[in-house]
Design a protein around this nucleic acid. Structure first.
Lengths: 242, 242
DNA sequence: CCCGACAGAATTGTCGACAATATGCACCCC
DNA sequence: GGGGTGCATATTGTCGACAATTCTGTCGGG
């Protein structure tokens, strides 16, 4: 007879755009960055973003701080926010860091108990070899890979690691599509994902981590061959606003 | 010609505390957290910090966002900021991340070529067991550990990783001194450092990483055994400010 | 006696405006 | 003509106030 009346009190939001808060702005802007709407190094003026989202500069500032912590934006005191540039001299080191953190995720996924998320991940990873053979180009297969990554994120339960990897992936994910564009790499990576799924189901953390690191090593062989030619080390333009 | 409006060029700082900006507040508060001024889980009310630093709430909010990105503070929407506690889900995850990144550093140290930095690191690490036996308390030994860490940083040549680990060490290094306060742990860690030095000299990256991860696992056993007695996450809704 | 609902207080989210500082441009001197 | 200097503009940092939401203490009913 206990009348469960949750304290939902008719949430009436007056603002026309109900989702224009700091978090929403950060999410939308992050998506824009991911989609390449802004050039690397482009300035993000607070007033412009405030006008775009029909709000004040305060939530925009919060959103920019959030994006900075995510790594996709760099804020310098009194000089504003800019899109982060992958022109770091530590490009290869970032690759190694991502490798280590991804290995941690695989390890945690293997240690996680068997629940629906784990079953989903194992299924997604095991299906990759078949998709690698069926896919005619790298783009379709990359989509499947991203699905498996999403399942891995869900099962590993390592939000901070995911956040860290995201902040470090900027400028690197461009290689991924190229890597799986070669059928040999595609199949090799798919098989490693399958190995990871087997290890995860068996609870073998070391094997899962080794498989994940193998995926990165497979990519590294590809990336290493084309990295040395990249050292522009100059600032092409000064004004890249908007 | 344009109109001439001569203005005062004198730089006059009106505020008595010239360095009370968001960054300064973040740094000072981070130091306070490190020194244990705030209890883990204590709330950080914006107005209280604003009063403390004689400024408005805006820079305080910026500082809190910064501290959140560093992991020493947890912010929940509409519920304010709290000092991060080991009970927070991300605490152990941060520990694992540090473990993975430290393993990467050891790995890179082993792969580095033999130069003066490597010789220095190997010597520093090999000397730890003797120092562990000679040290009468944990504090002296912790100093030797820090020296070895400095040598490892120099030889591994992973500045980005070091920066990342530094940003994640908040609230964790407090345990380190306690861990080496027990002689058994002290000796175990020293021996693992020695193993790491051996592996580094032999160029065995996997062994070096395993030794480093062993050091963290040794610490984890200590931390895990002491955590349940900390705070039982009940409902300590009393005033925990200041 | 315990559970749910209500009102008050406390705290956070957002806003518009002002002050401080960096950037860009024209001018002046060499 | 080139380089340094100073001002005008644009952008960021900060402030005080209001609105929205959550938390706390109290009251009434079963």
């Amino acid at each position: 007879m206990t009348k469960r009346s949750p304290r939902t009190k008719a949430k009436a939001l007056r603002t026309p755009d109900a989702r224009v808060s700091a978090l929403g702005i950060a999410r939308d802007t992050a998506r824009d960055i991911e989609r390449g709407v802004y050039q690397p190094g482009a300035r993000l003026r607070e007033q412009a973003l405030a006008d775009k989202f029909h709000c004040s500069r305060a939530p925009v500032r919060e959103a920019l701080r959030l994006l900075e912590s995510q790594g996709s934006v760099v804020i310098e005191p009194m000089r504003g926010a800019r899109i982060a540039t992958p022109q770091d001299p530590t490009f290869y080191e970032v690759f190694l860091i991502r490798r280590a953190l991804a290995g941690l995720m695989a390890q945690q996924a293997a240690l996680a108990k068997h629940d629906e998320a784990k079953i989903h991940f194992v299924a997604a990873a095991r299906g990759l070899p078949a998709r690698a053979r069926a896919a005619v180009d790298g783009h379709a297969f990359a989509k499947s890979i991203r699905k498996a990554i999403g399942a891995l994120i869900a099962v590993s339960r390592t939000p901070r690691t995911v956040q860290l990897v995201r902040s470090l992936t900027f400028g690197h994910e461009a290689f991924q599509d190229e890597i799986v564009d070669i059928k040999k790499n595609r199949l090799a990576q798919a098989n490693l994902w399958r190995d990871m799924a087997d290890a995860a189901e068996a609870g073998d953390a070391n094997a899962a981590r080794a498989a994940m690191e193998g995926i990165f090593d497979n990519s590294r062989d590809f990336v290493a061959g084309r990295l040395p030619t990249e050292t522009p080390k100059r600032r092409p333009t000064r004004r890249q606003a908007e």
